[in-house]
Write a protein that binds this DNA or RNA. Structure first.
Lengths: 234, 234
DNA sequence: ATCTTAACGCTACAGTTGTCGCACTAACCG
DNA sequence: CGGTTAGTGCGACAACTGTAGCGTTAAGAT
């Protein structure tokens, strides 16, 4: 899980670069230090100096390559996005969404939570926010396969808006744990999934059924799961 | 909107206090300064010194009464909670939830957003987080009246879990705008509200069906086994 | 009006944060 | 194997942050 394949952050020109050997080692040490600090103290205690010290690297190096705490987090987020992840496949839509929600709930419940730390960080760094958005987009894009499978099984109308259904199913879990900061409810993942499935069965996410709106192209972008490549020049 | 009745923060003993005159004036100046700073620069630029300067008050004073930025935000949040607010009452459940979602969407869309700033701050101060939780609890508690009215009108089963329904209806809006940071979708408030109402009509938020729960609906059946008493979905 | 003292203003100060210049190490190239 | 230089370590430094002590102001009580 060391993940040193990500694009080196905060790099001026792409000409005579030198990414091997020591540079890669330093990056791995720093990112590991960030993860360790997050796991120990949470995002509140994450500081440039602490990371540098733990990584056995000089402060100035961390400041140079990653500009600030947000840069560090952005790199960690991108690294997380490179891990291959697959949505659950239990055989039924409701089962998939429930399993997905349980996975989400667990990731948000473990203290200190990685996911929460990343969300918090994304508020203080535009760079981290962009990385966060890329990660969301990637994950939700993959989850559309869940809806596609359900449609193939005949569990859904063909015109169901996959993204809308996924958000309806998962949003309550995030809302409850991240924004409301409520205690984790063991039944919530299934209830939220069930509610979304019911709404979908009723046609709530039909692309054409809605009132007169049918608001066409809800998402501003048409290319899912592509952006996280070599597109970050600080 | 000045609101100087809130609990004076960061106060050791409660005996020989002196909350009138100058003290109240200083508090009002500081809180106004915080709001102004948030409105101008967003939460990222909010600093103790900046607030003190804008308020025309000395730094040490701000540090003494409000311990840190989180303390300032907590006080602002509490002040916001003192404004009397009432959930919409349009005559139908779906209309109420849609109006509520539109209100939420607007509060999250205005740049810079107060609400977003407060959420961001709640990640960095336990004090602000608690104030935030109080505010959420208050608002959702009031919104339960919306569900109660709908139940009286016969739009809902009597055993509907009001809180679960409200969260299902509003969570997608928050999720889309706060966590996913997507562009505001004019149709989302109504779609999310409609989906929640549909799910409620299907019995997804029945108070007694915790944990397990007779799920006929994982197959493409459109009709639940128990037809709700009066299910008109507007 | 007078007294008491909570709360504020001010200054000084220690600690922290981020930057800069320079020396040095070690990738990459031939 | 040496040469070039990207990348790192190091130390010094300015700017910022938060705290403490002390004098001053004015709120509340008599």
């Amino acid at each position: 899980m060391t993940a040193q394949k990500a694009t080196p952050p905060a790099d001026g020109g792409g000409r005579g670069r030198r990414p091997g050997g020591r540079t890669a080692r330093v990056r791995a040490q720093v990112l590991d230090a960030v993860r360790a600090e997050l796991a120990e103290n949470g995002h509140g205690e994450l500081t440039m100096e602490g990371v540098a010290t733990r990584a056995g690297v000089h402060r100035a190096t961390v400041y140079r390559r990653w500009r600030d705490v947000g840069g560090l987090l952005a790199d960690v987020i991108d690294a997380a996005g490179e891990m291959d992840w697959h949505p659950p496949d239990t055989g039924s839509l409701r089962g998939d969404l429930t399993a997905l929600n349980e996975e989400i709930q667990e990731s948000l419940t473990v203290r200190p939570s990685f996911a929460v730390a990343l969300m918090a960080a994304s508020y203080h760094s535009e760079q981290a926010a962009e990385a966060q958005t890329r990660l969301w987009e990637d994950r939700y894009g993959q989850c559309e396969a869940v809806v596609a499978r359900a449609a193939e099984r005949g569990e859904l109308r063909g015109d169901t808006d996959a993204r809308a259904l996924l958000i309806a199913a998962t949003a309550p879990v995030y809302h409850q744990l991240v924004l409301l900061r409520g205690a984790p409810d063991p039944g919530l993942p299934e209830r939220a999934a069930g509610a979304a499935v019911l709404a979908a069965a009723g046609g709530a996410f039909g692309a054409e059924k809605r009132t007169e709106g049918r608001q066409e192209s809800r998402t501003p972008r048409k290319n899912p799961a592509h952006p996280p490549k070599g597109m970050r020049v600080n």
